[in-house]
């Protein structure tokens, strides 16, 4: 499989780097503090391909804590609020769009 770092990076707007946490698979976001957070609001926002590559490079290097980092689009609203840039990322952030089968 091609490493994400070998793939051509093309971004068209604000983006973040996201992955899944190794021990439990939970969705995580790369932060400015060279760490991970499970809050999108903590994610480092990049706006150029070079910035994205740099953020992805440090994320990929943290193989112990994160699986499969990749660049994903976000929308940054006027008040600075960050929202997922597509349906897939929306579902990763907020969970399944259906009610999970409940226990009686």
């Amino acid at each position: 499989m091609t490493s994400p770092l070998q793939q051509k990076i093309k971004i068209t707007g604000p983006s973040i780097v996201t992955a899944n946490r190794t021990w439990d698979g939970a969705v995580i976001y790369r932060t400015d503090a060279k760490s991970w957070s499970d809050e999108l609001t903590d994610a480092a926002i990049v706006r150029t391909a070079d910035e994205a590559r740099a953020l992805l490079t440090e994320a990929v290097a943290d193989d112990l804590n994160a699986i499969g980092p990749y660049i994903a689009p976000v929308e940054v609203e006027a008040d600075g609020a960050v929202k997922p840039g597509n349906m897939r990322e929306h579902i990763r952030l907020t969970g399944a769009t259906i009610a999970l089968p409940a226990q009686a």
Binding site: N20, D24, G25, A26, V27, I67, I91, R92
Partner: peptide
């Protein structure tokens, strides 16, 4: 061993 990684979890 049947362990995948999906959107939210394994």
């Amino acid at each position: 061993n049947g362990v995948y990684l999906q959107l939210h979890a394994y």
